[in-house]
Amino acid sequence: MNINDCFNCRIRVENVNFYYAKSQALKNINLDMFNNNATAIIGPSGCGKSTFIRLLNRMNELIPNTNLEGKILLDGKDINAIDTDVVEIRQLVGMVFQKPNPFPKSIYNNLSYGLEVKGIKDKHLIEKRIIESLKKSVLWDEVKDRLHDNALRLSGGQQQRLCIARCLAVEPEVILFDEPCASLDPISTAKIEELIVELKKNYTIVIVTHNMQQAARVSDFTAFFLLGELIEFGTTEKIFTSPKNKKTEEYLTGRFG
């Protein structure tokens, strides 16, 4: 049975090639990401995982001289079509970055920014959303008494959860995590992982990670990238227990990467 039949496909990537100037970063990628599941993208450095995930909310457009071929469909709609609004895409597809990047503003204003940008003016609604998203990102108890403190005073792990809350406040349906724990200590990492497991009940999640245990812990599906190619894709259980491709097995067992 084809896995596509059992799950609801949220994002479909079709024949995608991506180039930085003349060097090709992604080669003919075909990949489906499913609703209410976490898909992990693993692979050694420079294999194109970050490039790949940044295509899903069109962040690579900020880099000059890049070129994309192929289609990326969100709920069947081409996100790069001329009549698609990039702002709408980014509100539907939120992103959490490798390094926590709160704005140099108060915790409250970090969260209200995305809502104001969306045109929400109702103060009560903004406050309600802020509290909800802080609770969802399990940060509420730590910051509820100091919402107007500068966000940069929080610890690295708290900052990253704030960034997740900021992303949730805009009510996205897909959340992209680009190595969200790369700069965090083990305890903060564990908290973020728990949070991702919780979030995937309601969101579609794509996570790039260097850490294979992390992929195993949080994801339902895993895609293994190598030198810009998608080598293998399948349920996380299968990829980690009985990979079909020899390269996948070598990477997972630590023979390179």
């Binding site: 962040m59 900020l62 980014r90 970055f97 390094k99 704005f103 140099p104 920014y113 940008v117």
Partner: peptide, 25 residues
Amino acid sequence: KRYKEAALALGATHWQAIYKVILVA
């Protein structure tokens, strides 16, 4: 650059990113 990226990823337009994030920073 990460401030601008964060703003854009939240669905801000270029002007909204300039006006409320970059200008403040």
